[in-house]
Amino acid sequence: MDKESPLMKMQSRSVYKVPKGKLLKIYLKYDEKSNLIDEINITGDFFAYPEEAIESMEDKLKDTLLEKEILFKKIDSIIRTENIQFIGVDVKGLTKGILMCKK
């Protein structure tokens, strides 16, 4: 990875093509013992409205347990409270992409 990339510090990444959607590239730093998210970057060629809400989502995902149902509910709740509209990716795709980062 490029030395200038802010994602260099991340321990794990995933690349996931959402069915009928866009390419999701997720960078994750997490505690391998507790399975809690330490830091996350959700990148890719998708669309989200408003765009800035993605940063808020990344903040709110900190300390979330990397477990399918819990993660799904958390993302769904953030989307509702932040009133985010995703195009090219959905809750299921985000959950899958994040869990793919788990070693």
Partner: peptide, 29 residues
């Protein structure tokens, strides 16, 4: 907007070939 610059672009090659790079305020690729 949501892409990682360093992950998508060969910055050194852009500089070498005189190609600019910029992040949009819109999503997409």
């Amino acid at each position: 907007y949501f892409q990682s610059l360093a992950e998508e672009i060969d910055i050194d090659m852009c500089k070498k070939l005189g190609v600019d790079y910029v992040r949009r305020i819109t999503g997409g690729g």
